[in-house]
């Protein structure tokens, strides 16, 4: 059984006014325990709208949201407790920081869960370490940190709830390469430690190609593609027609293939592409 399952979700913004906007059309998808899924789509395709359904922030106009097989909206008063298990990191999460020290801000989620002080302290330290910041940050003013550090503090605030599913909306947007690396390291570490499922939202394939196992592609509010990473990247033309990019390394291989070289194109990280090319060159050297 899937951990979270969305069934035939429809959602309209400003329903019944002149500004009505049908943002999601008949979307169905599932996330299994421990899985890592990439949610990709052009800007405005409904990614952010979709993930707000996972933890009951938006109520679908029709369709069902199932968490561990239970319909979320059958018991609306229990949604809050489910939110502690489905951690949602919004786009630019650093803008929601409000406490005067890093430690206090991270404590907000655990405190809302009603944990005791000792447990809260343990979780603060753990999640801070997970995002690669040392203890000296605990007492620092979050508003004096760099953009990348602030974002990692905000993410630590969600990790401290130890969610079973971690959903991140464009977590790397606007970060420099160094900040991006630190961020993805943190995500890798959280997954390895907790075995949580991760849903990574992005409009860039490159960002998430080496992080996820499965990709769901949204186009204008409906699911266009859903499958393992390799099989999605194999459909480069379709992706391009939706307005999405494919990783540079895949592009190189596709270009070679178009020129008549017999390379395999199912590579989407630089390492895989390198291996593929070396393999091809060795074969070409042979008489």
């Amino acid at each position: 059984m899937a951990l979270i399952e969305l069934k035939n979700i429809n959602y309209c913004y400003s329903l019944g006014t002149a500004f009505e906007k049908h943002a999601l059309r008949d979307v169905s998808m599932a996330v299994d325990a421990g899985e890592s899924v990439g949610l990709i789509g052009h800007t405005g395709s409904g990614k952010s709208t979709l993930i707000r359904h996972f933890n009951g922030l938006l109520r679908p106009n029709s369709g069902q949201v199932l968490y561990q097989g239970n319909d979320l909206w059958k018991k609306p008063n229990e949604i809050r407790s489910i939110r502690f298990q489905i951690g949602l990191v919004f786009q630019y999460p650093e803008t929601q920081i409000f406490e005067e020290t890093v430690g206090k801000d991270i404590a907000y989620g655990p405190r809302n869960m009603g944990l005791d002080q000792e447990e809260i302290n343990a979780r603060i330290r753990e999640s801070l370490q997970c995002v690669g910041l040392d203890k000296s940050y605990l007492e620092r003013n979050p508003f004096r940190l760099s953009g990348g550090e602030m974002r990692r503090v905000a993410i630590a605030g969600v990790l401290a709830m130890r969610p079973k599913v971690l959903i991140l909306d464009e977590p790397a947007a606007g970060l420099d390469p160094e900040g991006r690396h630190a961020l993805f390291d943190a995500l890798h570490q959280y997954r390895r430690k907790s075995g949580a499922a991760v849903v990574l939202v992005s409009h860039s394939m490159e960002d998430i190609a080496d992080f996820v196992d499965r990709v769901v592609v949204l186009d204008q509010g409906s699911v266009a593609l859903d499958g393992p990473v390799a099989s999605i990247f194999a459909q480069a033309e379709k992706l391009v027609s939706i307005g999405l990019d494919i990783p540079q390394s895949t592009k190189v291989l596709l270009g070679l293939k178009a020129k008549g070289y017999s390379v395999k194109t199912a590579a989407y990280t630089v390492e895989q592409a390198e291996r593929e090319l070396l393999c091809f060159l060795k074969e070409a050297d042979r008489p």
């Binding site: 707000r52 933890n55 939110r83 919004f90 929601q96 920081i97 907000y108 809302n112 869960m113 969600v158």
Partner: peptide
């Protein structure tokens, strides 16, 4: 509001003091 709700914020419940306190995480940002 949504982001703080995702971290378990509750609005409009509890004592008056708690209700007011619940708005700091929203008003400050």
């Amino acid at each position: 509001i949504e982001a703080q709700k995702a971290r378990g914020a509750q609005f409009g419940t509890g004592t008056i003091l708690n209700r007011i306190r619940a708005f700091f995480p929203v008003i400050l940002p």
